[in-house]
Structure formats: C-alpha cells, structure tokens
C-alpha cells in the first residue's frame, strides 16, 4: 500500500451549548462527592483535615475539568449523516468512530434528559439490529435533533433493506 488511508472527521459539530451541558455534568458529579465531604468535615471536628483536604483537592480537580475538558471534547465529538450512513466520532483518550448504514437502521429516537432540557439540547440515538451497533449523537439543538430524526426516518424508509 503506497498511500496511507485515514478516517476523515465527520463534517458537523455539536451545538455550542453542549459545552455548558458538559460543564454542568462535571459540576454535578464533583458536587456529589465534595458536598458530603464538606458536611462531614464541618460536623466531625477531630477528623476535619481528613475530610476537608480531599474535598479541596477534588474541588480543584473538578474546576480544572470544568475549564479544560469541554473545549477538548467539543473538538473531538463530531457527526455526519449522508444518504448512505450515519457517521460519528467520539471518545477522548479512547477515540471511537461509528458507522451505521441507512439500510440497516431499525429505529431513530430523540431523547431529552432533564439537564439537557435546561440547555435546550437533545440526543439522537440510531439503533440497528445489532445491540452493539447503536450510534448516539449527544448534544444537538432541540429543533435540529427533531429535524434530523425526521430526515433519518425518511431516508431509512426510502432505503431498501431488511435491517439484518
């Protein structure tokens, strides 16, 4: 092979607001750990240092994560839909590309979690007959997601195939 074949990144970015959503997620996750530690530290005087120092360290880690991770993730997470397939890129340390052909798509779902709803975001999930083959696009604008789901449903209806 004289030429080097590479995967090109999918064409579309997620909605900008996804970074705020990720920040909120990291914030919630950090708070779930840090807040109980803080309360314990304030209540149990003799072991105060044992609770407050880890709490402070975790809080700093969480803050750094909130500042640095979302922009990094945003650059990696991409998606694309062609007439033939759905193509996504995700993951950070373990990058994952997924391709699902239109002719094999069984269902197209849009989902909005409570936190996502606060940021006006949706998740589009495309499933095939393989339980290992689901493709998720997390963090699209609500209307954009609805349009995409509609378009996907239309294309899969027009594409012949028995989905297995």
């Amino acid at each position: 092979m004289s030429s080097a074949t590479r995967l090109r990144p999918p064409r579309n970015w997620l909605d900008q607001r996804v970074m705020a959503w990720w920040r909120a997620q990291i914030g919630v996750l950090t708070a779930v750990v840090v807040v109980p530690l803080l309360i314990l530290g304030l209540l149990i005087a003799p072991a105060r240092a044992w609770f407050l120092i880890p709490a402070a360290v975790l809080a700093v880690v969480g803050l750094v994560g909130i500042l640095l991770l979302p922009p990094w993730w945003f650059r990696i997470h991409r998606w694309e839909v062609t007439d033939q397939a759905v193509y996504t890129r995700g993951g950070v340390l373990w990058q994952v590309w997924r391709v699902a052909p239109m002719s094999r798509i069984q269902t197209v779902d849009t989902m909005r979690g409570p936190l996502q709803r606060a940021f006006g975001l949706s998740t589009v999930t495309v499933t095939t007959a393989s339980s290992a083959g689901a493709v998720k696009i997390e963090g699209l604008d609500h209307e954009q997601a609805a349009d995409l789901a509609e378009e996907l449903t239309r294309i899969t209806h027009d594409t012949p195939g028995d989905a297995t």
Partner: peptide
C-alpha cells in the same frame, strides 16, 4: 451492519487501530 473503529492513546502512538464489525 455497521463499523466501530476505536483507537486508544497508546494505540494512536503505535499506529494501531481496532476495527469492530457489528452484526
């Protein structure tokens, strides 16, 4: 009925890739 390609940091440095066929 689909592809999943994955590459960890270590795989990227070694020029390796895992190709998974879903069925």
């Amino acid at each position: 009925i689909g592809w999943r390609l994955s590459q960890s940091v270590f795989q990227r440095r070694a020029g390796l890739l895992t190709l998974t066929a879903t069925t």
